[in-house]
Design a protein around this nucleic acid. Structure first.
Lengths: 204, 204
DNA sequence: TAACCTACCAAACACTTGTTAGGGAAGGGA
DNA sequence: TCCCTTCCCTAACAAGTGTTTGGTAGGTTA
């Protein structure tokens, strides 16, 4: 399955492609996918709209490549954590930390994912978004259940509500996070984990 | 300032307008504002695209009315809570509960607000989104600071991080919440507050 | 020098978009 | 009966959309 246009007799350099993908991701994240015109992307990259089609075969293809390469890297990190055989609490800690590192590295892609994944998932081309989301839920929900069984997580909470709570608190951060800001990803992860695990109220 | 088209010699009924606003909000929330065509909205309402312009003067006007009427109602509830003179913890509890009630009543509007407000706020027409967001931050951040001073909230956390944490955990719920589901808004608020205040870990 | 490849431009294409203008059907009030 | 109001339709417009086609400047290779 050719993802780029190697059906034609051209071979764009991966380096330039990478640059353009970065530009496109920034614009998509800022304006939204549908509100972004290919002329705007080209403009931001210092070229004309048609020239983009030397590197990519469609606007949708650009989006596809941004999201799938992000998810590939995400799961590389997640699978490593899940294979480490940690306890439930340590697994959650490692997943959250890894998530904030991904937000740090793929801020734009995460923002796009959050805004668009819901209605993109309905299209066949982006079916992998659904798969990823299911795998995601399995990993997090499973860990939480293990934690409840091991009596390290509270058993008086609706587990699905807890799952959504933890998942969302982590990933929405991409909407305000700016790399090179006051806190490192690890520091943010540490504070978020402290809030999620122990709450923001003073212990009596 | 006429928000509808009363410059022309027509007077659409508020009831029908309300119905159409509801339809439009649902479609906007599901597909995203820019990805939604006025033909799609009209289709969902059982009429043709041009007919919408009997009730509204533009697509943007529809969006404007959805968002502003939601914010109006939101602040009606918030102002009541803030004027009640409650303690910091009770204020947070009341604000969160009120927020979930708003999500219950204006699910679509909240979803639209979350997806689009960031880049809409740049337009002059939607300047009230910025005002609202500032007022919002002032209310929540102020309450959290009061709580830290009164030693009911932890002082070892970055207060801005805490603010974003609480704010986001509450409002993202609109992306998965469905009215008439397993839990009432009040029950969700109760569990969320329990997680935010006391954490999900078992207390040792 | 000649052939070739990379990376872009110029100009157009077909289509979709939000929006408008004029008209008409249904019903109520005079 | 006639008029007026409400609500929608038909048909079109102009602007903007993603995309294609053919061409070309500049470098690399033979």
């Amino acid at each position: 399955m050719p993802k780029q246009n190697d059906s034609k007799n051209v071979t764009p350099s991966p380096a330039r492609r990478g640059e353009l993908l970065g530009v496109a991701a920034e614009v998509f994240a800022a304006q939204g996918y549908n509100a972004t015109t290919v002329r705007k992307i080209a403009d931001e990259a210092g070229m004309l709209a048609g020239s983009l089609y030397y590197h990519f075969d469609s606007k949708e293809g650009i989006l596809d490549e941004i999201l799938s390469s992000f998810l590939d890297e995400l799961w590389q990190g997640y699978d490593e954590v899940l294979a480490a055989g940690l306890g439930p609490r340590e697994t959650i800690e490692a997943l959250v930390t890894e998530s904030f590192r991904e937000i740090d590295r793929h801020r734009a892609a995460v923002a796009i994912y959050q805004k668009e994944s819901r209605h993109l998932a309905q299209q066949e081309r982006f079916a992998y978004l659904v798969e990823s989301q299911q795998k995601f839920e399995k990993a997090w929900l499973g860990t939480l259940e293990r934690g409840v069984a091991a009596q390290v997580f509270r058993s008086d909470l609706d587990i699905r509500l807890t799952y959504r709570f933890v998942r969302d608190t982590v990933w929405v951060a991409a909407s305000w996070y700016r790399p090179g800001g006051q806190h490192s990803p690890e520091e943010i992860a540490r504070q978020y984990l402290s809030m999620v695990l122990d709450g923001i109220a003073v212990r009596i």
